[in-house]
Design a protein around this nucleic acid. Structure first.
Ligand SMILES: [Mn+2]
Ligand SMILES: [Mn+2]
Ligand SMILES: [Mn+2]
Ligand SMILES: [Mn+2]
Lengths: 224, 224
DNA sequence: TACTATTTTTAGATTTGTCTAAATTTAATA
DNA sequence: TATTAAATTTAGACAAATCTAAAAATAGTA
């Protein structure tokens, strides 16, 4: 139908993400905050996105993304995450360095390029942060993820991702080797502040609730 | 100093190329033709590029690129050609398919990304079309290239590049396996139309002057 | 319910890059 | 050299995306 501009792609991606963050209705100001722009600019853009049928928009009533808009958003998210895999696995960037570059690369338009990149990378299912990569049709894995802060003392878990994607947080976790795929056992949970003592390989760390709240895990199972 | 926009980068790249195509002074209309835009638009942009000291521009007198502007242009050309190597060598695209994608990828801004891509690719000196890749300082190899049409019957040559970069021409050459690095011997040159019979491996082809004029070669030397 | 605070939209500008049409300058030629 | 042709620049407009400030609508609260 229409060919979205890079800006339109960014709006749709943001609206898609906000729609899936438990936030009831996606309103103008939440979009403005996420996009680091003004509510007035968002209103302007919402009208354009609505004209092109990527969202349903009624003045003052908030926004709902359409199936069409979702398809655009998932395409961009797919590109973003595949490029992130490329940057970490092939060019050896750290997981806290790749997001900014992927923000640019995700707008390179060739579908064939991303198809071949996907093949070259071995059809990865998750990006370096543990986020699932949509396939060409938009489908992706959704392993039930829960927070390390909800884990129990004495139990063993595998890190599957993070809820805070900020460079600061990712860098912090890297210092402890707390990356997706790594096995963590909870040695002790402090009653006073809910901080925890965890074991990773031979090392023991003390993690604040602030940190454990933002780490996603699944139960450890020895078979694969 | 200033951060060039993608459009400014494209203008500078075009001006740089025109400056090195033997065309005496780079004039407004030649830029307009190359960029597929109007002379009026070019005039507007020349003023901007001049303000930012990437070109020297005097009304009605044409354009000369500055050292600063050349540095910008060479940076873009480096990115363009490295991405072309990536697309052909790593993602298995054909040499006639990569230019369009590289036109987008060349504007991805990270210097560190291109540095690592260069390392990953093994610091290639030439792109898939035989064009030299500038290094980080802007230096590049300039093998003296001459045209196959100026070759002599009975002699053996190695293809080093092309002067026509159109998809049509590149596709045509691919059909015959006439790619950079391939050895060609001229069996016969027809007096009437200067067309030639060439041998590539076991195959013999008849090449029109139109074609041989656009193929760049160097003398064959058995040692390396 | 009435008033106030917050959110959202509108109005009016600005920047970047583009265009067409008209005016101006330079080049070509009779 | 005078006149015509071609190239270039200017003038005025437009689309995309943004902004600030003001107006309008909705939500929160006494
Ligand atoms: Mn990211
Ligand atoms: Mn983006
Ligand atoms: Mn190219
Ligand atoms: Mn090339």
């Amino acid at each position: 139908m229409y060919q979205p501009t890079a800006t339109e792609e960014n709006y749709l991606k943001t609206i898609y993400h906000l729609s899936n963050t438990g936030i009831k209705s996606v309103n103008t100001s939440s979009i403005a905050t996420s996009m680091e722009t003004t509510a007035a600019s968002v209103t302007d853009m919402l009208r354009k996105l609505s004209d092109k049928e990527w969202i349903n928009y009624e003045k003052y009533k908030g926004v709902k993304i359409t199936r069409k808009g979702e398809k655009v958003a998932l395409g961009i998210i797919r590109k973003h995450r595949l490029w992130e895999v490329f940057l970490t696995n092939i060019l050896d960037f750290e997981w806290d360095e790749v997001h900014h570059m992927a923000e640019e690369l995700e707008h390179v338009s060739s579908e064939e390029l991303i198809k071949r990149l996907d093949t070259f990378l071995g059809h990865p299912k998750f990006d370096p942060h543990g986020d699932p990569i949509p396939d060409q049709t938009g489908k992706m894995e959704s392993h039930d993820k829960f927070n390390l802060s909800a884990g129990e003392a004495g139990e063993k878990y595998i890190i599957t991702g993070v809820t805070d994607h900020s460079t600061l947080f990712l860098k912090h976790l890297r210092k402890y080797g707390l990356l997706p795929g790594v096995t963590v056992s909870i040695a002790e949970i402090m009653d006073y502040d809910k901080s925890m003592l965890v074991k990773v390989n031979k090392d023991k760390f003390h993690l604040s609730l602030e940190v454990s709240k933002n780490i996603l895990i699944k139960k450890y199972v020895s078979s694969k």
